[in-house]
């Protein structure tokens, strides 16, 4: 670990000497206008083919991802302890296609029209629904674009892979968090165990 930190510091010193910036350690104030994506012929500032910036590479090395901030602190444990399953209402696309889906406020109101209407948070979402607005849920799990992974939930659900295998015990906590690091080794181990294909084109295309 110490050697790793020293290594990173050495790389940082080298970058600073060459004038290469990186988003992980950049403390200077950001310009008000966001830079547009590079046009053809323009320098991209890409350091490696696998990461869009040096900072992204460093973040990936330490398995750091920006924390998603949810619009409300959704208590998964309360709902699961009431006997609601993950795929029943809230993530029901999971059996049909690639994306599990995040429920709209209308889905909440199927039950909460009648249940726990005295709680402030429920009144909050009722007000949202009445205004025709929706909850801006943030995805917690996902693959970075440069990993070229195309994941499909449906075949995994059909193969009776439990949600908890990849998502950990989300039903035991409140706000969803990344409990399992979905590395390629994690996927391939399970594919090997279950005799599922491990060809590159199974996931990467």
């Amino acid at each position: 670990m110490v050697a790793r930190v020293i290594g990173i510091l050495a790389v940082c010193a080298w970058c600073a000497a060459l004038g290469i910036g990186c988003s992980a350690l950049d403390t200077s104030p950001k310009p008000a206008t966001q830079a547009l994506p590079p046009l053809p012929g323009q320098a991209t500032g890409v350091l490696t083919t696998a990461h869009e910036s040096f900072g992204a590479a460093v973040n990936d090395f330490f398995a750091r991802r920006p924390e998603p901030v949810q619009p409300i602190e959704f208590p998964h444990n309360t709902h699961v302890s009431q006997g609601l399953t993950c795929t029943e209402y809230c993530h029901e696309s999971v059996t049909k296609g690639p994306v599990a889906g995040l429920p709209s406020v209308k889905t909440c109101m199927i039950c909460h029209e009648a249940i726990a209407t005295d709680r402030p948070r429920i009144q909050q979402i009722t007000a949202l629904r009445d205004k025709g607005l929706d909850l801006n849920w943030q995805r917690v799990y996902g693959y970075p674009a440069q990993s070229h992974v195309k994941f499909n939930h449906a075949p995994h659900v059909r193969a009776n892979v439990d949600c908890a295998t990849c998502h950990g015990n989300i039903g035991g906590g409140t706000v969803a968090q990344v409990n399992v690091k979905l590395s390629m080794g994690f996927c391939v181990n399970c594919h090997n165990e279950k005799k599922a294909p491990v060809d590159c084109l199974t996931c990467h295309f």
């Binding site: 994506p37 590079p38 046009l39 012929g41 323009q42 991209t44 890409v46 869009e52 195309k150």
Partner: peptide, 24 residues
């Protein structure tokens, strides 16, 4: 080059196919 499209063409990308970055 990294892939880029003139707006609003960047909204019509196929989500089933990954975007290839510069250098592949």
């Amino acid at each position: 080059f990294n892939p880029s499209w003139d707006k609003p063409l960047h909204l019509q990308l196929n989500p089933d196919v990954s975007l290839r970055e510069v250098g592949v």
